[in-house]
């Protein structure tokens, strides 16, 4: 076996300096980024009035509060809380369903394969984006101004903020649909509406159903918090009990929320698998 000629390291180093030594910019990039991140972090701590004494007194307060929370005890308000929980679940379900119903036609307008014209698609997309940019809580405040305090304002708030999210997700699902079915319908003489009904919908409906279920799940969480600004449901009770420092009731309410969310998670993941088979969307 013949020996390979030894490469001349010095010569190679002269030829390809980048291989032997990483340039200073590459070596320094990571430490510089870490240093910058830390600097902003420290600046943030100072600017936001963090102080060790505040942290320690707060922690001891928090420890005390936690002690007060045990054992969770609803007192005599258990039926009221169950009703509030029902209200929360209703808000989530109704808000999400209405949002999906309204978003479906609009998402067709935002999908590239349905509306090729940028002129319509672009404004529709920006409109959906701005709706999504506003938090559900803010929508709840606005709706409270319109229909008054109560769970109805919560339904409308969830509906509007999910409308933006669904519009985007649905239009992406539609864009991902296969062209061939639509072409088949057109070849057999169907009009544009037929193409959507028989070519597109059968493909996208399972995906959409999966997303709607997932949102019902996550909206159970959102519905618990919009009560804090007065839009009904269990959040209203929770905020009230926190403000009057009834810690045992607070911990009971939090437990109720956790159990309800876990139950909804379980049911909806079962349903989701039933609808779309074993591979979950999202």
């Amino acid at each position: 076996m013949s020996q390979m000629p030894r490469p001349d390291i010095a010569e190679l180093r002269g030829k390809y300096p980048g291989v032997f030594e990483r340039p200073a910019s590459a070596r320094l990039a990571l430490p510089a980024m870490v240093a910058a991140a830390l600097a902003i972090f420290v600046y943030g701590l100072v600017d936001l009035d963090f102080s060790p004494t505040k942290l320690i007194t707060g922690m001891s307060q928090l420890g005390w509060i936690t002690m007060m929370m045990i054992p969770p005890n609803p007192g005599s308000s258990f039926p009221l809380y169950m009703q509030a929980l029902g209200e929360t679940l209703s808000i989530a379900l109704l808000g999400t369903t209405l949002a999906a119903l309204f978003a479906l036609p609009v998402s067709l307008l935002a999908a590239r394969n349905i509306i090729p014209s940028n002129l319509i698609r672009f404004p529709v997309r920006r409109f959906l984006d701005s709706i999504r940019g506003v938090d559900t809580l803010i929508w709840a405040l606005v709706w409270i101004n319109v229909v008054g305090l109560g769970p109805f304002a919560g339904v409308l708030a969830i509906m509007v903020s999910d409308f933006g999210a669904f519009g985007k997700l649905f239009s992406e699902a539609i864009e991902a649909a296969d062209r061939k079915q639509v072409e088949g319908i057109r070849a057999s003489g169907g009009n544009a509406l037929h193409e959507i009904r028989f070519g597109l919908l059968p493909q996208v409906l399972p995906v959409i159903a999966g997303q709607v279920l997932y949102f019902i799940e996550s909206n159970t969480r959102s519905a618990t918090i919009i009560g804090i600004v007065g839009a009904g449901g269990i959040g209203l009770q929770l905020a009230e009990q926190i403000r009057v420092l009834e810690w045992q009731k607070v911990s009971f309410l939090i437990l109720m929320i956790l159990i309800a969310v876990a139950a909804i998670d379980f049911i909806s993941s079962k349903l989701r698998f039933a609808i779309i088979g074993q591979r979950a969307v999202v």
């Binding site: 963090f50 505040k54 942290l55």
Partner: peptide, 12 residues
């Protein structure tokens, strides 16, 4: 909500 009571009002 809970931390506001424990740590006081403010960004912390």
């Amino acid at each position: 909500l809970i931390f506001v009571i424990a740590f006081g009002l403010g960004p912390m």
